[in-house]
Structures are given as C-alpha cells and as structure tokens.
Nucleic acid binder design. Structure first.
Lengths: 214, 214
DNA sequence: GTCACAATGTGGACATCGTCCACAAACCAT
DNA sequence: ATGGTTTGTGGACGATGTCCACATTGTGAC
C-alpha cells in the first residue's frame, strides 16, 4: 500500500506513474553536469528505470526533451535575477534604483551562467521561436521571465531619466549582448579558468560598460 | 605520368598522398555548412575517398580535427577584420583613426560571424589553451591573429587619448564580450532571423556602445 | 640492389546513440 | 465484462567514434 517513493531504477508496476516528470528531471540533472550534449535520451530513461523507447510516449524526440530542459533553465535564470534584485536597498531613489536594477539583472545573469553552466548553455542549445508565446514555466517567482525582467529594468531607467527615450528601443539586446558574450567567453572561451573573483571583477566592468554606453 | 589532380572519391594508388590536407579541407567544408557538429570524422574520410580509420594516422581523434578546423577559422576571422580595417580612410587623424580601427575590428568580427556562421561557431566548439603559443596559422595577412588585431586597435585609442590608460587593461575582453554576445544572439539566440540590414544596424549600435562605455 | 623497418591505408569489430515498428500490459469508459 | 486508448517492452537499423590486427608502400642501412 505504501508508495515506493524511492526510485531504484527498477519498478514493480508496469506503469511508471510519472515518467514525463522523471525524464525531465533526469534531463535537467544531465544538463547541469555536462551541458546540453549530455542530455541523452537513453541515459534519461535509464535513470527513470525504463526502456529507451518509453521516452517517445512523452517527448517526440531528444530535441523535445532538450526544449523542456531549456524552459526549466529559463525559470531558474529568472530566479537568479530576482535574487539579485532583492539585494537592492529599498531606500534607493529613482535613478539609483533604476541603475541598480539593470546591474542586478546583469549580475544575476552572470551568476547563473557561471554557477549553473550546464543549464545556462542548454538555454541556447536548441532552436526556438522568438518571440515565444508567454509561458509561466519560464518565469521566476514574480511571474516574469528573464527577458521581461530586463525590460522592466530598462523601463525604470527611462522613467528615472537616466536613459533617453530614443535609446530605449532595442536596448534589451545591447545589454544582453554584452553580458551574454562575457558569460560565453568565461564558459567556453579565452576567459575560461578565470577565478571566481576575477570573473566577478571583470563582470562588474562589463555591466558598467553597458550602463555607460547604452 | 600525369598527376591525377581531380579527386573523385576513388584512388588508384594505395597511398593518398596528401590525406591530412584533404581531411582538413573536408572538415572545413563540413564546418562551413553545418557548424562544428557537422565535422564528422567518417564523412571527412568519405570525402577524401579513404576508409574511416585512415584519419587516425593524421589526427588523434575527431577533436584534433576540429582543433585544426578552428585554427583555419581563426585565420579567416583575422582576414575579415583586416578587410574591414582596410576600408578606413587613410586621411583620418589619430583619434578618429583609433576609433575607426576599433569599430572596424568589431564589424569585421560580426561580418565573419554572420556570413561564416559555421566556421565562427567552430572557433568556440572545442576546448583550447589560453593564452596559446603564437601560431602563424591563426593569423591574417598582417601576421596578427584576431586577438592581436583587437589589441592594436585599443592601443591606438590609448595613444590617441580617447581611452584612459587606466581603462586599457582588460579592455579587450569588454569589447570582445559585447560583440561576441551580439553575434551569438543573432546566430543561435533571440535575434535569429534578423534581416541582414537589421543585424547590421543593431551591430552598429553594439559597437558604439562599446566605444562609449569602455 | 636488397632487406628490414617505419609510415600509411584497409578490414572488421564494438559500444553507444537516436529512432522506428510490432507487440504486451494496464487503465478507462461504456 | 469488454473494447479501445494509453503507456511500456523487445528487437532492430543505421550512424558515429574508436580499437586492433593486417596489408601495402616508401625509405634508409648495408
């Protein structure tokens, strides 16, 4: 009668019960420790204690599994940004709050990229539509997804008068480019092997460059 | 007596004669039209008209072939930058020459990334040492590799007084981050599907952001 | 020139992967 | 109870990277 909550690779029942979730979680774990290429259908089914073909009842292909992993990764990225936003002093005035928000978004992005490298890389490992229909599964606890969080920060800058309205359009992509590029250079580029402190210091300068150059 | 210069997948001689080069060229072609994942050992040997194992006499593994492709890609990237540098008016004064050089480097980088996407992605698809021992195979016609070209542009800016000396250190990576990130967003990110004109226009703004924010 | 040796290409094999097809078991609505 | 739908199983195929033993060719010592 008691549910076999532990999942020791073997099952007594013919049906798994929650295979889709099990596969997704295995996929996330694989992505975390090995990046998108490590998200291997057969290994996920192995971890779920199921035969390889069973996966096809829940994901049309390996790519679909990767897409699901990507959505989960986006949500965690949003959480990382929100965590950074929450460190802002509530006593800040408009201009400083706006600038601080943009910095927080950037630093939250970098923190996620450098600590959850595998998941971060998985976000860009699969083709996807853009813009995508709003999907709460991609959001953080505020209900906003990473891109929306960035947009809000930029809007605050316009309201506070620290970003001219005529430069607002497309500014998401300028800011994103700089921070994303830095993350990639650290992860799989020439900046690989930088210590955490060095990466933080350089990352800080990247964010400042954006703030100043936007 | 006449050399069989054409290479119709079959050979009359037991020895190939120039297999390493043939494999590398096949690898480059595969990378060009399909990115790093398309660089498949067996396909390269097929194109060279040779059995799969023959590759192992010239490359220790698929990864080593990819590394060789990467070096070739770096050289072409340097050429793209140099081509952009050569469009600068020779009548420019120091400050404008310096700024123009930095812009040219950035635009050359972007042009290569967006027109030779497969090769560009191959540059970052494989782990490599950094800094690497100087290797002329990575350079353009000036003898400088892409990173050195960027360094020269930044040095010019310091000399011309448009970049404070105290900001020179590490500036390579700030500039590189922004341009690289933009390229990645266009190639495999949310900016995918941007028209050439749109990409050029936004790319211009990225370069300006760097110039202003460095 | 001959002959041993090094260099290079061949043949066959193995494990792994994604995916397809036919079949079996379990759940569900009638 | 029964028939249909959902979900998992079993077996197969072609592709890939890589390993080992073997065959062929070029080369240097004598």
């Amino acid at each position: 009668m008691t549910d076999q909550v532990t999942r020791p690779t073997t099952r007594s029942t013919y049906r798994h019960g929650d295979l889709r979730r099990a596969l997704l979680e295995a996929g996330i774990a694989l992505a975390q420790s090995g990046g998108p290429d490590a998200v291997v259908l057969r290994e996920a089914t192995r971890r779920a204690g199921v035969v390889p073909n069973a996966a096809y009842r829940h994901f049309a292909s390996r790519l679909e599994l990767l897409r699901a992993v990507r959505v989960a990764a986006l949500s965690r990225l949003a959480l990382s940004m929100e965590a950074e936003l929450n460190t802002l002093s509530p006593a800040l005035d408009g201009a400083e709050l706006a600038r601080g928000s943009l910095r927080a978004i950037g630093l939250g992005y970098l923190r996620f990229a450098l600590t959850e490298t595998g998941l971060f890389r998985s976000i860009f490992a699969v083709p996807y539509d853009w813009p995508a229909p709003p999907d709460p599964a991609k959001a953080g606890s505020s209900g906003l997804n990473p891109f929306q969080l960035l947009g809000v920060a930029l809007d605050r800058m316009v309201e506070a008068g620290v970003l001219p309205t005529e430069r607002r359009h497309g500014a998401e992509f300028l800011a994103w480019s700089a921070v994303h590029g830095f993350a990639m250079l650290v992860i799989e580029g020439p900046l690989h092997g930088l210590s955490r402190e060095q990466a933080d210091a350089l990352g800080q300068r990247v964010v400042e460059m954006v703030e100043k150059g936007l």
